[in-house]
Design a binder for these strands. Structure first.
Lengths: 155, 155
DNA sequence: CGCTTGCTTTGAGTGCACTCCAGGGTTCTA
DNA sequence: TAGAACCCTGGAGTGCACTCAAAGCAAGCG
């Protein structure tokens, strides 16, 4: 894996942190599928599959037809990764990708979609915190009752 | 399963809130499968399936062989529900159920399992908060750029 | 008594998100 | 110029967590 190195970050309005470490500068960003797999943690299979189902915005190809991913593709995959771990179904991400492809007039719809997703994430965090409370009660039960057989209802 | 008997709500070391509203008092707690489905939000199919795979601790039966769930079963299902929404695989929950069935000498192992789960939950909360940050950046981008076509890298 | 509704079982089917395979072309290293 | 390592495609396969089907018993009601 020939990773050169990275300079600045981006032309992205939505800058944020460098996302990953091993990027190439923006003119020389042509990654093979296995490089992208290594950078994203996704398998090459999955990357091809994402493309087939319409979750990727037109990946460039070499003159012989092999995929060449750009920094922009990496940014997109980072977003997809984030959305994925909110539990958003792939179909919904495809929907979002379609909106992006459709052009600027879908701004509002994307906005709504993201806001709804945001609500879902907040709800899931709340759920998890509820679970944490249950877990902590159980854990302190087991910590205390190391030996004394104090019966607990659900164990 | 060594709980002798219970008074108002519980002898449960792990008391907590009433969990659900529509419970019957502890002597008269014999719910049909469809009642439990309504109370837990799980389908009757799923409840039977949980039993088949060893995720339920011996559900009682009527004289004609129909399932009769108790408040204790409801408590168990509430715990399972919590664990489920942490993303814990069903196989791991079955493992926990086996430990409970195996008796008091598995206390330590259950303790470890719960602590590991707790760590997972904390990690997942952190992930979600990271995602939230990304979503908020995107959302404010779309909020600002309501009309002006400021190009953003991943849209 | 008959009807409806609900419950039982085993085994098969579904949907999602990958994951792999076969059979072939391409690119890098020695 | 080999050979190894990588990449391509379409379609089939996998694992998980349900979900349903079929065929039959059981309980309550007019």
């Amino acid at each position: 894996m020939t990773v050169t190195e990275t300079t600045g970050t981006t032309t992205d309005i939505c800058a944020g942190p460098p996302e990953h470490g091993d990027r190439r500068p923006d003119g020389a960003d042509r990654y093979t599928i296995s490089e992208v797999a290594a950078l994203t943690g996704l398998s090459a299979h999955t990357l091809r599959w994402y493309e087939r189902i319409g979750l990727m915005p037109h990946v460039d190809r070499s003159h012989t037809g092999q995929r060449r991913y750009t920094n922009r593709d990496l940014d997109w995959l980072a977003l997809v990764g984030k959305l994925r771990l909110t539990g958003m179904p792939v179909a919904d991400m495809v929907r979002y990708a379609e909106l992006v492809r459709a052009g600027d007039h879908t701004y509002r719809e994307r906005f709504e979609l993201l806001k709804a997703t945001r609500e879902d994430v907040l709800a899931r965090i709340a759920e998890l915190q509820g679970t944490l409370a249950v877990l902590d009660r159980k854990i302190s039960f087991y910590a205390d009752a190391g030996q004394s057989p104090a019966p607990e209802r659900t164990r």
